[in-house]
């Protein structure tokens, strides 16, 4: 079963990327509130002024989490994200919720964004 799952991931990841480029999507930049690795969900707090919101995202299996620095930075996974990480996520609406297309970790809320290289 495990090889099959791996194969599915390999096939699904490029497909998801292609879908992401075609589907209408939104983006959010905010602080990770909750990471649920088992359910593959991520909750991000963001907002404007005191009008805050939490966006709950489904994260596809195998989706990498980029780090600021692009190719020079290490690639992370959902498991590596922690509450308080500042992330930039592009996502789209799907039946049943939002689906993350790309995730980038750009810093920590308590120290501010990492400098852009």
């Amino acid at each position: 079963m495990r090889p099959l799952a791996l194969l599915l991931c390999c096939v699904a990841a490029p497909l998801l990327s292609a879908v992401a480029q075609q589907a209408p999507h939104d983006s959010i930049r905010g602080a990770v509130r909750v990471v649920n690795v088992k359910a593959r969900t991520l909750e991000v707090t963001a907002g404007v002024g005191m009008a805050l919101r939490v966006v709950r995202l489904q994260v596809p299996a195998g989706m990498p989490v980029a780090t600021r620095g692009g190719g020079g930075g290490a690639t992370l996974t959902l498991r590596d994200l922690r509450p308080g990480d500042v992330v930039r996520v592009s996502y789209g609406a799907r039946p049943g919720g939002y689906l993350a297309y790309t995730i980038e970790r750009v810093g920590r809320m308590d120290v501010g964004p990492e400098p852009t290289p």
Partner: peptide, 14 residues
């Protein structure tokens, strides 16, 4: 750890 404060944004807060 990380986010000691929950602004209750998912429940309409703060």
């Amino acid at each position: 750890p990380g986010r000691a404060c929950d602004e209750l944004a998912a429940q309409g807060g703060p």
